[in-house]
């Protein structure tokens, strides 16, 4: 038995990825649950509009982080600010005092509702929850789950597909065949992209039909966001495959990239409740931006011009990840110096 234990320890010591998985994941979980897993929101972005905006803003408790004060604004202005995610609470400072709450930000909304009663110094306001009036969990989670499923399919399945070629030795065969690297790369990614698109259509339809989730925005905006997101996650899949020798290694790496996406993207825990020491990681994850787009489009009919930052960030992430993946994959297919290896006049 001692021999067996010694052998296992020796193997484990050399299997750095498993070791990393065993050490990094518990640490990550600890950090996540210690710092991130908070449903109570301490600062709620707030917009105050109307003729008494300044006076009302001054009286609001600290939790309401007043970012916009617009004396000329009306209820429509407040609704628009909420639709564009510039605030989660909109206070219409005109009689009767009305507080609009963005129901798509469930935890922030619940936190706000708890504080809109006796805590406010000016009587009982009218409170209206917009976009998700019942504060339905399904309405919040289903759009985000579309992103999570696509992440799993895009990252794990793509990485396994490429690594299988390496494991079977057929990647070398492809490298020698008269195919340009871009033919191989595009040919390899395109089927997964198409499968991802079909997957997205199926789970979106299932989400809408089974869970009665509203879809209020533009299909075009949703499709544009989904395409960018798919490209980013497929790029991650290819990148993982270039860093892995076996399918087991690819799965380990994929899990290591998926876990933070699930925990830190705002899918479960609101970004606004995360400390900045952890929140910056969220802004490096494609799922964070896809969730902003998809929740905005599904629930709030957010127009594309209000989704500029998530679109830009997603496009940037997709470009960076895909470029890295293609460069590394290209290196596997066309080792540097290949041309130098051909004697002058030898190539036709």
């Amino acid at each position: 038995m001692q021999a067996m234990i010694r052998k296992e320890f020796r193997q484990l010591r050399r299997d750095r990825r498993t070791l990393a998985l065993m050490i990094v994941v518990p640490l990550l979980l600890l950090v996540v649950f210690g710092y991130v897993a908070r449903f109570d929101v301490k600062e709620i972005p707030t917009a105050v509009v109307g003729v008494q905006a300044e006076a009302v803003a001054a009286l609001l408790p600290e939790t309401f982080d007043v970012r916009i004060v617009d004396r000329a604004g009306s209820r429509a202005t407040a609704e628009d600010l909420l639709r564009r995610s510039r605030a989660i609470i909109g206070v219409v400072a005109e009689p009767p005092l009305t507080i609009l709450v963005d129901g798509s930000e469930m935890f922030a909304a619940q936190s706000a509702l708890r504080r809109t009663g006796s805590a406010l110094p000016f009587g009982e306001p009218q409170v209206e929850i917009l976009f998700n009036p019942d504060l339905s969990t399904a309405a919040i989670m289903v759009p985000a789950l579309i992103g999570m499923v696509l992440t799993a399919v895009g990252t794990v399945i793509t990485s396994l597909g490429v690594v299988r070629e390496r494991q079977e030795g057929t990647l070398e065969q492809l490298a020698v065949m008269p195919l340009r690297p871009r033919d191989v790369i595009v040919g390899k990614i395109a089927p997964y992209f198409l499968v991802g698109v079909i997957d997205m259509a199926v789970i979106t339809a299932a989400g809408l039909l089974l869970f009665d989730v509203p879809f209020r925005g533009s299909w075009l905006v949703f499709i544009a966001g989904a395409v960018l997101f798919l490209l980013a996650v497929l790029g991650m899949g290819v990148l993982i495959s270039t860093l892995s020798q076996t399918q087991g290694e690819a799965i380990q790496l994929a899990i290591m990239t998926m876990l933070p996406q699930v925990m830190l993207s705002g899918m479960i825990f609101p970004l606004t409740s995360m400390p900045w020491g952890v929140r910056w990681i969220s802004y490096l994850l494609p799922l964070t931006y896809f969730i902003q787009i998809v929740r905005g489009v599904f629930l709030k009919a957010t127009p594309i011009d209000a989704l500029g930052i998530p679109f830009l960030a997603l496009a940037l992430l997709a470009a960076v990840v895909l470029s890295l993946a293609i460069l590394r994959f290209r290196r596997d297919l066309a080792p540097s110096g290949r041309r130098a290896a051909e004697a002058p006049g030898a190539a036709a």
């Binding site: 070398e172 020698v176 540097s336 110096g337 290949r338 290896a341 051909e342």
Partner: peptide
């Protein structure tokens, strides 16, 4: 097969096709 570049010396290969 053109998969490993030489560190030194000459290699005479046909085109990949």
């Amino acid at each position: 097969a053109g998969l490993v570049p030489p560190s030194r010396g000459a290699v005479r290969l046909p085109d990949r096709r």
